[in-house]
Amino acid sequence: GKMTGIVKWFNADKGFGFITPDDGSKDVFVHFSAIQNDGYKSLDEGQKVSFTIESGAKGPAAGNVTSL
């Protein structure tokens, strides 16, 4: 299901970062391709987001990332 969290950091040049889930679980990798907006796909440190957990090739990653 949907989770919420805070963006820990995001490197716009490399197109990835990490989200710290509100439930205290392990930080989740986020790739820019998972960001659900029409414009420039980037996130800001400290931004609140909702997301799902998808299993990627390198382990769990955030999917369906939407800013709240």
Rank of each mutant, 00 (worst) to 15 (best):
G1P: 06
G1E: 07
G1C: 13
G1Y: 15
M3Y: 11
M3S: 12
T4V: 06
T4S: 10
T4E: 07
T4D: 05
T4R: 08
G5N: 01
G5R: 00
G5F: 00
I6N: 11
I6R: 14
I6Q: 12
I6P: 00
V7P: 01
V7R: 00
K8Y: 01
K8E: 03
K8F: 00
K8V: 02
K8T: 05
W9Y: 09
W9P: 01
W9S: 09
W9L: 06
F10L: 03
F10C: 02
F10N: 02
F10S: 03
F10E: 02
F10K: 03
F10T: 03
N11D: 08
N11M: 05
N11E: 05
N11C: 10
A12Y: 09
A12D: 13
A12I: 07
D13V: 15
D13H: 15
D13E: 14
D13L: 14
D13C: 14
K14V: 08
K14N: 05
G15I: 02
G15A: 03
G15L: 02
F16E: 10
F16G: 04
F16C: 07
F16S: 05
F16V: 09
F16L: 05
G17F: 00
G17T: 00
F18S: 05
F18W: 10
F18I: 05
F18H: 04
I19A: 01
I19L: 08
I19V: 05
I19K: 00
T20K: 15
T20G: 08
P21K: 01
P21H: 00
P21I: 01
D22I: 06
D22R: 04
D23P: 01
D23E: 11
D23I: 08
D23N: 13
G24L: 06
G24M: 07
G24T: 05
S25K: 10
K26S: 11
K26F: 06
K26P: 12
D27C: 04
V28F: 04
F29Q: 06
F29V: 05
F29G: 04
F29S: 05
V30Q: 02
V30S: 02
V30F: 11
V30C: 11
V30E: 01
H31L: 02
H31Y: 03
H31T: 04
H31G: 04
F32H: 10
F32A: 13
F32L: 09
F32T: 13
S33A: 06
S33D: 06
S33N: 08
S33R: 08
A34R: 10
A34E: 10
I35H: 02
Q36P: 05
Q36G: 09
Q36H: 11
N37Q: 15
N37R: 14
N37W: 08
D38I: 08
D38S: 13
D38W: 09
D38F: 07
G39W: 06
G39P: 09
G39I: 09
Y40A: 13
Y40W: 14
Y40Q: 13
Y40V: 13
Y40K: 14
K41W: 05
K41P: 10
K41C: 06
K41R: 14
S42I: 11
L43C: 03
D44Y: 11
E45A: 15
G46V: 00
G46Y: 04
G46S: 04
G46W: 02
Q47L: 07
Q47E: 15
Q47S: 11
K48V: 10
K48T: 10
K48Q: 13
K48P: 11
K48E: 14
K48H: 15
K48N: 09
V49G: 00
V49T: 01
V49C: 07
S50Q: 12
S50W: 06
S50E: 10
F51A: 01
T52N: 10
T52E: 10
T52V: 13
T52M: 08
I53Q: 07
I53K: 13
I53N: 05
I53V: 14
I53F: 08
E54G: 09
E54D: 07
E54C: 13
S55M: 15
S55Q: 12
S55A: 15
S55P: 11
A57F: 12
A57N: 11
A57D: 12
K58I: 07
K58V: 07
K58R: 12
K58E: 08
K58L: 07
G59Q: 05
P60T: 09
P60M: 10
P60Y: 07
A61V: 14
A61H: 11
A61W: 12
A61P: 02
A61R: 15
A61G: 06
A62R: 02
A62K: 02
G63T: 14
G63F: 10
N64H: 03
V65R: 00
V65F: 00
V65L: 04
T66K: 14
T66H: 13
T66G: 05
T66W: 09
T66M: 14
S67E: 13
S67W: 08
S67P: 15
S67N: 06
L68N: 07
L68I: 14
L68F: 12
